[in-house]
Nucleic acid binder design. Structure first.
Lengths: 214, 214
DNA sequence: GTCTATACCGTGATAGAC
DNA sequence: GTCTATCACGGTATAGAC
């Protein structure tokens, strides 16, 4: 039976691959860079995970499930709290964003790399189609449904476009490009997820209300 | 003197490279794919543009100047129209977004590819640092200044973060990943820039007002 | 000056021996 | 699990045709 990530070297391969893929993209990374970074033999990644492409999927899927589960839990918990009334917009958006903030706060640097990887996949025409479909789209569907309940007057297209803007704002945040650092002369930091999320929630909530009606 | 883009083959190389880089990223494209796509010899791209990296820069810079100039013109025209009063938020945001809409409406498919390329560069930690600094940051500085005038009560950090959200929403739109098509069951289309821009303006304007104060 | 044919050499992914 | 060989492919330089 193939080791599914229990071995130490196996984990190191995933961690290194995650970091490098996040920074340089799939094609910008070689198996040799990964094995060198993980301090293992060139062939070991192959042995554990198969081809390069399968390693990429393994890296992406490792944390995807956990993220999806946390999002779902938060959304359901809020729904129970709200009882019969629809949730507020802010609650829904929080349930969507907070799991990423929590992950970041674990201190595991792997999560930071994973977020940049997620941004890469979200914004790539190629990878988005191949990878977001299986792992994320279903969960997003649940959010869209919650949004419809919270915004009963809204047209469906308007909700979808607004969700798209949230998704974009989130993706650029996850990408941690360092641009806001430059543009603000150091007053804001790409690494400051807390600053990003606290403003993002009111920002997008106001946007939703404006476009989708109160 | 080297041909700076006047020759027909030279243009074909740029167009093909633009399309492929936009879709697969820098490392995902080979010089041979580019020359095959442009139907020219492998060595010709080298002759006109030098190394692969220089070709990438040539592709990126070709339309960057035009885009920046149009943005500047619109911003200045609005400032003159407004006279002493500060511009409205909506005007500023429009001056920022409309040039991309216009470019799209020229019907030149190259612009569509360029937009996806721009999204790629904007969201990549590596390329953002290398390429957005020279070409775009100065112009963005002017927008941020205009925003400060329109939102006199705002803290500088708040403006920067809100600009960051706009930038993200825009990047994901430019990337044309096709995700909104899937999630909306075909009700919305990635290719429909008009739908994207008309909602984006009120969406982000409301967000700015919420976070940065009226 | 524009372009093609071709050759070079390094590097990459991966399979198979151990 | 590891080491090594294979073989294709990639970027780029050069020589010379038009």
């Amino acid at each position: 039976m193939k080791n599914k990530g229990k071995g130490e070297k196996s984990e190191r391969i995933l961690d290194t691959a995650e970091e490098l893929f996040a920074l340089h993209g799939y094609d910008g990374v070689t198996m040799r860079q990964i094995s060198t970074g993980a301090d293992v033999d060139v062939a070991l990644a192959n042995y554990h995970f198969g081809k390069k492409l399968d390693l990429f999927y393994a890296v992406f899927n490792r944390r995807a499930d956990l993220l999806g589960a946390t999002r779902r839990e938060l959304l359901l918990a809020n729904q129970q709290k709200a009882g019969d009334k629809p949730q507020t917009l802010e609650q829904i958006i929080e349930a969507f964003l907070l799991p990423l903030k929590f992950a970041q706060e674990t201190g595991d640097p792997g999560w930071k790399n994973y977020m940049a990887l997620l941004a890469y996949v979200m914004t790539s025409p190629i990878w988005n189609k191949r990878m977001m479909t299986d792992n994320f789209d279903k969960r997003v569907g649940e959010f869209i449904e919650a949004l419809k309940l919270a915004l009963p007057k809204a047209k469906e297209e308007d909700i979808h476009w607004c969700y798209h803007y949230v998704s974009g704002a989130l993706a650029l945040t996850l990408a941690q490009t360092g641009r806001i650092d430059r543009l603000s002369g150091g007053k804001c930091l790409s690494s400051d997820f807390d600053a990003a999320y606290t403003r993002m929630i009111p920002f997008v909530a106001a946007g939703f209300r404006e476009v989708c009606g109160k």
